[in-house]
Amino acid sequence: MPTLVGAGIVVTTLNKILAIAGVVVTLGGVALGFRSVSAGGTVCGSAFQPAAGITPMACDNALNSSGTLVTVVISAGVLCLIAAAAVKVVRDKVSA
C-alpha cells in the first residue's frame, strides 16, 4: 500500500492543533462561567455561582444566556479534544 511521505506530519500537526484548541476553548468556557453578568444595573453573579439575595426574575435571562454560552463553548472544546483523540486512534491503527 503506497503511503505519502508528508501525510504523517500533517496528521500529527492536525492532532496537536485540535488538542491545543480543545484545551484553550474548554478553559475559555470555564473562564466565561466565572465572569459576572448583570441585568438592569443588578449584579447577578456568574453562571457558576449566582449572586446571593438577587430577585430571580430580574436575572433569569442574563444567567440563562450566560449558562448557555458557557455550555456551548465548553462543549466545543470537548468536541475538539474528542476529535484529537479520534485522529490519534485512527493514525495509530493505520500505521500499525
Rank of each mutant, 00 (worst) to 15 (best):
M1Y: 15
M1H: 15
P2S: 10
T3G: 07
T3S: 14
T3W: 08
G6F: 01
A7T: 03
A7S: 04
G8V: 10
I9D: 08
V10F: 05
V11H: 11
V11S: 11
V11L: 07
T12K: 13
T12P: 00
T13Y: 05
T13A: 11
L14W: 08
L14Q: 01
L14G: 05
N15M: 10
N15P: 02
N15E: 08
I17V: 14
I17Y: 09
I20M: 14
I20E: 14
I20A: 15
I20C: 13
A21S: 14
G22K: 02
V25R: 04
T26W: 12
T26A: 13
L27E: 13
G28F: 11
G29H: 03
G29S: 11
G29Q: 06
V30A: 08
V30S: 09
V30M: 13
V30I: 13
A31C: 09
A31P: 04
L32P: 00
G33C: 04
G33T: 10
F34W: 06
R35K: 09
R35C: 09
S36I: 10
V37P: 00
S38C: 06
A39K: 14
A39T: 09
G40D: 15
G40M: 11
G40H: 14
G40V: 08
G41C: 07
G41R: 09
G41H: 07
T42R: 14
C44M: 03
G45N: 03
G45H: 00
G45P: 02
S46K: 02
S46Y: 05
S46L: 03
A47C: 04
F48P: 03
F48D: 06
F48L: 08
F48I: 04
P50G: 02
P50L: 06
P50K: 05
A51T: 01
A51C: 07
A52G: 12
I54K: 03
T55F: 02
T55E: 06
M57L: 13
M57V: 10
M57T: 02
C59K: 12
C59F: 07
N61M: 05
N61F: 06
A62V: 07
A62E: 05
A62N: 04
A62F: 06
S65E: 03
S65N: 04
S65V: 03
S65T: 08
S65H: 06
S66V: 05
S66E: 02
S66D: 01
S66N: 01
G67I: 00
G67W: 00
G67L: 00
G67Y: 00
T68R: 03
L69R: 05
L69Q: 01
V70E: 02
V70Y: 01
T71F: 10
V72M: 01
V72R: 07
I74Q: 08
S75E: 00
S75I: 03
G77V: 11
G77T: 07
V78C: 08
V78Y: 04
V78A: 14
L79P: 00
L79R: 02
L79M: 14
C80H: 02
C80M: 08
L81G: 12
L81T: 12
I82E: 05
I82N: 01
A83V: 02
A84D: 10
A86H: 10
A86F: 09
V87L: 14
V87H: 13
K88R: 10
V89I: 13
V89G: 06
D92Q: 09
D92C: 15
K93F: 06
S95H: 11
A96W: 12
